[in-house]
Nucleic acid binder design. Sequence first.
DNA 1: CTGAAAGCGCTTACAG
DNA 2: CTGAAAGCGCTTACAG
Lengths: 338, 338
Amino acid sequence: MANIKEVALKAGVSTSTVSRALSGKIFVDPETKKKVLQAVRELNYQPNALAKGLKEGRTKTLGLIIPNLHNLLFPAAIRGITDIAKKHGYTVVLCNTDEDLETEQLYVENLRMRSVDGLIFSTATAASSHIVKLKEEGYPVVLMLRHLNEKLDSIIIDNFQGAYRATRFLIDRGYRRIAIINGTLGLDLYRQRFLGYQAALADAGLALDETLVVYDTAGWEDGYQAMLDLWERGGQPDAVVATSDPKALGVIKAVKERKLRVPEDIAVIGYDNLDMSELMDPPLTTMAQPFYEVGTKAAERVIKLINGKGKLKPVIEKLEVKLLVRGSVGYGKAFHGD
Amino acid sequence: MANIKEVALKAGVSTSTVSRALSGKIFVDPETKKKVLQAVRELNYQPNALAKGLKEGRTKTLGLIIPNLHNLLFPAAIRGITDIAKKHGYTVVLCNTDEDLETEQLYVENLRMRSVDGLIFSTATAASSHIVKLKEEGYPVVLMLRHLNEKLDSIIIDNFQGAYRATRFLIDRGYRRIAIINGTLGLDLYRQRFLGYQAALADAGLALDETLVVYDTAGWEDGYQAMLDLWERGGQPDAVVATSDPKALGVIKAVKERKLRVPEDIAVIGYDNLDMSELMDPPLTTMAQPFYEVGTKAAERVIKLINGKGKLKPVIEKLEVKLLVRGSVGYGKAFHGD
DNA sequence: CTGAAAGCGCTTACAG
DNA sequence: CTGAAAGCGCTTACAG
């Protein structure tokens, strides 16, 4: 590939002039500029971004660290990020950690070495002292979806409210034995959802029944198994709050296999609003999360940090979830009209 | 961040020695090495990858261009790529084009400027002369999944065979009016699937009935609509080959809504084997594609090209699909035992 | 308005 | 075994 020297030679000017003609930041004689652009075209010249980055001390690149590409919520957030990044002239480098802390640290080092200008994390673990350290060094960092820390800018979803509203909706519809099939309490988002569930029960004067609580599930297979466990324990739920759509679908499968009906015998509400959830049989009632918006906000925030040289105070932004009512929830025995 | 000069100063050696002590390629006195490593640790030094890349003429980075992150097949392929990349010390830069050719060209330019060592494409369009041009310049390029071109290394799936076997399976099970709900013929993969479908019919002595063919569908909504269209036209299918799982699920939804049963009234076979397909009601019979393996092979190939300086002849590798028989296909009227 | 020169942070022949 | 120097390809004060 041609370099700036060859362009300068062909255009009969100095490399400084080529650089200026291309950057547009400093005035260059129109005639000279024309010659330069002509040479650029003939040689198919493209400036070397490594050299440019080395000189300028920035690369116009954002690093994005994601725990699991298979989790259907990330693609939407990623799209939000890349859309904003593109608008501001940034490229996004995506790293998938497979929920592994060591891999995450490796990628962080790698991205730092590559002089990535800012980092967006959806981190696997709560602790992650290496992230806080990055921030302390003045490195622009934004947390997304998974966890929050008062020292770090975070774009998250109001998980407490989401679970509260889901549970409250079931109560209002007349359900009383409401089970929750939750994820790991190692993640703040699942702790918040559990708290929301508890608060909704408490506000309605219902006692928390531990036989109706399942922890540490992930994926539809776990949802299916969790439902079997609930029956095994004699939990007798008339409704289930699943903390993800796949888990909700696993629950529905279990209910159908037992020859029970959704929602007549057991109502099910999910969390995520995946593409597929609407086409299910019955269509899944769920809490829709604004993933795309999370992505755009995270990208906007990290770009702001980059431009502000990290002197801004951390901002924690919580986005609302939306209840989508579909066929998987009906009316329970305690329902007496609105 | 500390640079090599500060490390050299602290360790009381030259920058050359620091570089050598860290690279390990040239022998350095163990005592000296110890001093260097000590200084590195104290300063938390990490070599600047831009400077290194600029000097060495390579960046140990692979570019990956994907048309659509929402398409559930890509995450599996991406994981295959990143796993191999990691093993060889490469980082992967992911770009999502949203099926837009202009965006694709922009990313290609960008990745080239960044001195990415090799590129893996799953390209939106068949033409893409900019890709062929890259190859002609000696740039390591591998095509994946979407399209092939004799001049370019490609890792693809045997789509002809896949559709042939799906159709053949339905015929063997006694179905005779087999519809196909296909994607755009602009993509080679859908052309191949259509040809496989036709060949299976022809081999069984069945005529191709155009009222049973729907083109240009994508996503479950289209599958749903396509099924309505088939009935509208009076196609009267007893089985449907859908060229993706989401489309198959849309078909099943339409069948159920018409109060018909799958597979008793209409059998359905999909293509992809998404995570969710097994939990559907009924579980979806489908052609499983080895996406992870496609990813690993593509990454291995591009790394081989990088090391071979592009002097290798293009290799086109076709991987087999696997028929997974589940509840959505039963036995048709023409079935007379095995 | 333009050029010569310095420098970003590395690596690596070239000497010794 | 180690150091001084050149150079990767840019950008940008500094002169003029």
